[in-house]
Amino acid sequence: MLSRVANCLYWMSRYLERADNTARLLDVNLQLLLDGRALDERALAGHWIPIVQSAGDETLFSALYPRATAETVTEFLVFHPENPNSIQGSISQARENARMVRDQITGEVWEEINRLYLFLRQPQARAMARSSAVEFFQEIKASSLLLQGLTNATVLHNEGWLFQQAGKYLERADKTSRILDVRHTAFPARGAPEPVSQAGALEWAAVLRSCSAWDAYKSTHGSEVQPALVADFLLLSPDFPRSVRYCVQQLNHALRRISGVAESSFSNDAEKLAGRLLAELQFGTPAEIFDAGLHTSIDVLQSKLNDIGAALFKAYIFQAFLIQDSEQLHQQEEQQQQAASALSPG
């Protein structure tokens, strides 16, 4: 498979997953506010700023908006053209990558990505996000699930599919850890988070619901929301398909299948790092994580995921591409055979 194509598939998949997670995060937190507490401006900012932080774009946000409110955060994370990680930005980039590899994905997958892209660009999309946010985010989440289903059911499970899997699970592991980290002001510097009051429990339940983990958590731990158990569940559950451990396991598996190297050894840094992180998650305990500090542990985890992404790029994608002047490339691409599509009248 062409390295460039592998790269496109990997990023297409990452951006789709990114949009999906942003939609989940916003959806749940908007609903949380509806739970009927009048919040002053400071309390509102205290609610929304961590959410912006979890998307990793706090500096850009504060440059663009004076206040963090439901409206500004939604605008920023869903539509703002200067935020490349907004839902619209992510879908546009997913589509741009998909466009470059249209011969590698099926018509069904392409049409759905294109439909979602066109949906987000309509003026009605903004109105819908404002007036019926639940339906709006449902549309995005449903589309994401449809795309995952189509990818599994219609695309050849070949190398390209494995690169998509790798991208999806790497992104998802990172996002799950970030959604958990939204509550970081409630984490103690060391030790397990304390049991919480009823109001606090709502916010922890929101974390679970952002990861679609509410039902799965309940069936494992009962309906009482314990912060320590939530953290354990989202980081270390071996079976929950959005837990960090599960994602790293899938990522590791995809990497092994790309190279054909057994789990017991490795042929490149991506496999080495992924295997090592998986072992840590498999053989780590919640107590150890809390001892090191939950927020610190999540930070370390995120940088390890970044390292795996960088190693993957180095192993498969980067082959000393010439760094070209993209403006010039763009222009020349456009100029080619403009002529051929035109008729000169006789």
Binding site: R102, L329, E334
Partner: peptide, 21 residues
């Protein structure tokens, strides 16, 4: 020439139909 070319759709279309890169 790349995805910014106006005939790019056609290029991917033909490649896919022919089963070539």
């Amino acid at each position: 020439p790349g995805s910014y070319n106006s005939a790019y759709f056609e290029h991917t279309y033909l490649a896919r139909q022919m089963g070539i890169e």
